[in-house]
Design a protein around this nucleic acid. Sequence first.
DNA 1: GTCTATACCTTGATAGAC
DNA 2: GTCTATCAAGGTATAGAC
Lengths: 192, 192
Amino acid sequence: MNALTNTREQIIETAHQLMLQRGYNGFSYKDISKPLGVKNAAIHYHFPCKADLVRELIRENHELLKQMTGEFMAYGGEARPQLEGLFAFTVQQCGCGRPICIIGALAVDYEDLPEDIKAANEAFISDSTSWLSRVLELGREQGELEFNGDPEIKAMLIMASIQGLRQIARFHGTGVFAKAFDQIRIDLGMNT
Amino acid sequence: MNALTNTREQIIETAHQLMLQRGYNGFSYKDISKPLGVKNAAIHYHFPCKADLVRELIRENHELLKQMTGEFMAYGGEARPQLEGLFAFTVQQCGCGRPICIIGALAVDYEDLPEDIKAANEAFISDSTSWLSRVLELGREQGELEFNGDPEIKAMLIMASIQGLRQIARFHGTGVFAKAFDQIRIDLGMNT
DNA sequence: GTCTATACCTTGATAGAC
DNA sequence: GTCTATCAAGGTATAGAC
């Protein structure tokens, strides 16, 4: 990795952070360039317009998800460690300056988004829900988890609750995570 | 209600709509004044700065909640109709141009908010969660609902999931509500 | 209470030198 | 690849006439 690619990486990293802290409309090119010690125009060289930059963020976020969920087999096909991984991931993200999730961030700025970014986020939601759905289904089959209803819907509901939790945590503190995750464990019969 | 108060009401109504569609940073005074057929300065007369306006929105939203939850006794102390009311309220809000809830909208713009607005939103979260907590607790006592764990935490989790759902609905359509609410009913043993 | 006019700032984006 | 310089557009907010 040479100096050139390094700047590009740094731009993405900084923008990612800003995006999950302030939303699409809440940060500017200056917010990125200043901490990096470069000028406005340098960002435009790498990403001509803001949508190009955000497109890249979603792609990176999606990669992170694939990488995370791809480790499924490493747990020997068990469902519970996968769920614990999701909980840990959430806390870790909030702890490293990414308080809200990208779905929530983009939902607020929905009307300003180009169509392809909407589509990319839609795919991100579908993929993460599908993954959790498979975990839930397998867990129920294997007797690790207990719940009624369609795994797909249950998965969406859990994903939605975690997304909402991250936003509530901003106002009520990150202490809500431990309590809420305990409740999810109870709801899924994981405390037995 | 004379013409003067009417303009003020209209400003609040329009801003409320815009706020729940585009977030704190996503709308301007011009977005409010144009559809109302007045000028920029007219808004500033009623609300000197943007924070004053948003303060009023939260107050109004909070009133709406109190009014809604205050009808508890009208249902004869039954829990299930209260929950159905919450579901119906969510769908109704999304149907009348308020896709995201105010908690989610403000969570994204958190860093731009004055302290008193943060506090007001915090109180709004607490009040709505407390109300749902009482409904859940009573419902369990009366045998209407079935769930394990602390009603307060369970309430927060349900509130979080509805908040997240409204954001997911923006990308995946409002069809998610019916499915998700059915799942909540299943989780609470309301389908028996 | 609403208007016109305007001050002042930040934004995303571009052109051209180095 | 990064810089300086600059742009047009749009933002919040204020002053003063009506």
